[in-house]
Write a protein that binds this DNA or RNA. Sequence first.
DNA 1: ACACTTATACTCCCTTCGAGTATTAATAAA
DNA 2: TTTATTAATACTCGAAGGGAGTATAAGTGT
Lengths: 335, 335
Amino acid sequence: MASSEDQKYGQVVIDLNAVIVAIIDGQPKVLIVQHTPASLNAFNKSIGNTSRPADDILEVLPFGPFYPLQHRTMESSLRSWVEAQTERKIGYVEQLYTFGDAGRDMREIDGGPRGVSVGYLALVQDTGPTTIKNAQWQDWYRYFPWEDWRNGKPALLDAHIIPALMRWIEQSQNTAQKQERHERTCITFGLENTPWNEELVLERYELLFEANVVLEANQLSAKEEQSAYCGAAMAFDHRRILATAIGRLRGKLKYRPVVFELMPPAFTLSKLQQVVEALSGACLHKQNFRRLVEKKRLVEATGKMEDQTGGRPASQFRFRRDVLTEQRAHGVGRK
Amino acid sequence: MASSEDQKYGQVVIDLNAVIVAIIDGQPKVLIVQHTPASLNAFNKSIGNTSRPADDILEVLPFGPFYPLQHRTMESSLRSWVEAQTERKIGYVEQLYTFGDAGRDMREIDGGPRGVSVGYLALVQDTGPTTIKNAQWQDWYRYFPWEDWRNGKPALLDAHIIPALMRWIEQSQNTAQKQERHERTCITFGLENTPWNEELVLERYELLFEANVVLEANQLSAKEEQSAYCGAAMAFDHRRILATAIGRLRGKLKYRPVVFELMPPAFTLSKLQQVVEALSGACLHKQNFRRLVEKKRLVEATGKMEDQTGGRPASQFRFRRDVLTEQRAHGVGRK
DNA sequence: ACACTTATACTCCCTTCGAGTATTAATAAA
DNA sequence: TTTATTAATACTCGAAGGGAGTATAAGTGT
């Protein structure tokens, strides 16, 4: 049956991909690296479509190889290069998923090894710059504009996305497929009495991908631009990894106090709520949010006041670190 | 920085490990393969301790290599060999975690490649035998006897495990470590007002492993047997993978209707409750369980009756497949 | 007829949580 | 100095969910 010889296994290389999240000016940001096809080639990672002009810009997640000889665990490997390159302490790291689909990475096309990437979510505090070349903090809704419901339902949903999905449903081969496409669309996009579920980020992205509403960098021809309502494209399957990260973080928010990894040492309750809203892409009821945070005893007052609120001054709070070791350590979720 | 050359990356091979779960006679069972050190060697997987006698029996999870050349995705690769080897349809597959710690697998000791294993959870219906050599269905509480609270708190906890953990806490190097060990123990084992949380299967296993209360096959000397209260040992890190699977399944039960993947086409509500209790290792309030299942409209009556109940006959139900495509598709969880 | 077993129905009560009103303390404009 | 505006904070109401118990029904075995 199995043997470790390469010709039987096929060669495999492992990359670690990091979705590094920080809150900057109240907005959720992800660290993104911009590459040209040539600069990606230096990593032996080709985008596949070789007809792309050399000055084309590709957005990728920061990635690093997994050096089994130097690190005992993949997490420590990831932690060390992220901390080195972003020059900030990572508060929280979580393995997301291992992506091993064929066609993810174009190396194997030339008989190269199958690239398997292990995705990680890392939360950092916004302090100081990074030293990753060509890296910048991008708003994560740049890649998923339909996920931001803080100002109500995004107009692009009804204007473009839903109609495009409806056309895709109509193009089904048979009624069974049509039915299935219709149901999936209703569930993921909250149609027909189904409420919008902000955790289904990945499911929505995958549906749009299947329906050819979103295109990724290697599917775009050189001059073809993604329309504004599709969100920015990324190389490889990095947008899928990002979608996994956002969905996972949105889910985790509700039952673990992970928000605080993104907060400064002291903050007002409004600031905290703003961050939760920014991450989950939805508005929360202010009074109930306060009640929740207080009852779960997630924070304690510092005694100081914030007076640049534009209204009545607000008390400053800090995270009660004890809750991490207490009972179930709740999150700040509704539901 | 990075390059795909082996000498820089170090060599990596990927195994897929499957935790295959079925319910047999109302008990949660896992498919386990028994090996001798020699038969494991045929897979190029050495257990490390070469002083073990040749007739020693090692328990492992079914594993198979990932053949990137033959399968487009890891999940399809896993699905195909599990379905072929167990001769039953897999109802549900979920990727658990990617385990890449050094020392997991002994191949690398001899300069061989780092083994990375991707763990999967597969739920199957109990129909027909398997063709995996030396495979058998084992009760999963054989490996985690402290996880079964269906008949109240397991006696071995107070009799052996908690005292052993207390000794470990006492052996701390300093007060900070002592405090930390104490808190972790309280949270994971439900001491001092903390309630027992049945989802923390992995956390408990890891604590016991750290405290040297449980030993794995490669740590046991030839004649050294694990005491009954430590649970059965497994080779490599397979018991850790199993713990991950149980914890994940217990969590998922509460918000997704996954139990039904393990149920026969028709069942009584008591049978369903029994299975949920078997998986979560806890007793449930009968009347409330019925209320829950009915309100979430997870099942519908078949019209037939089961009369071998030992009391009043019970209605048979079947799973309402529609709920999979409905709204949020709840589970059968309390909380 | 009676004890025993299991199924099923219904009640009580407490907690959670969505949604709203009311009040307080600051700033800016009149 | 009043007044509008903004935001913080306090409190209330009611529906839904869920833990725990009682009551009743419909079988089996003695």
